[in-house]
């Protein structure tokens, strides 16, 4: 498990909040869309906070999943152009995908939460399976 110091997780995924709150600083935005999470992180990165995880992680496309969790720093470190470009490209990519019009069931929504959560755990070297057991997911 990666050190929880000097990082925070920007997320709209309730599963991430439930499992990882005991270990990491979570900024949970229940009402933000995936795109709005990207915008929030972009603004943080543009203002000098470090980006730790790729904003386009996972194979599920931005017009499919509604959940996104991204790890950023807690301290202003100065603007990283490469990270700014990553966020800019992530938003361009996000806007490229047209809405699918699919009504997802709770079952599918849980699948999306799981995928976002497991990708984040992979990045943090956190035992995703143990976390799921704890959350009774």
């Amino acid at each position: 498990m990666k050190s929880p110091h000097r990082i925070r997780i920007i997320t709209n995924n309730p599963l991430v909040k439930t499992v990882l709150s005991d270990y990491y600083t979570i900024e949970y935005y229940e009402d933000l869309s995936l795109r709005e999470i990207l915008v929030k992180v972009r603004d943080l990165v543009y203002s000098g906070y470090e980006l730790f995880t790729h904003p386009m992680a996972g194979s599920v496309k931005p017009n499919e999943t509604m959940f996104k969790s991204i790890v950023v720093g807690t301290d202003m470190k100065g603007v990283e152009i490469a990270h700014c470009n990553l966020m800019m490209n992530a938003l361009i990519t996000c806007d490229k995908f047209k809405p699918l019009g699919v009504q997802y069931s709770d079952y599918h929504i849980k699948d999306f939460q799981l995928i976002d959560y497991t990708l984040l755990c992979g990045a943090l070297d956190f035992d995703a399976i143990a976390g799921l057991s704890k959350a009774n997911f």
């Binding site: 992680a57 996972g58 194979s59 990708l119 984040l120 755990c121 992979g122 995703a128």
Partner: peptide
């Protein structure tokens, strides 16, 4: 190689 996390 695809290695993004569990199930990936």
């Amino acid at each position: 190689l695809q290695t993004q996390g569990l199930l990936h």
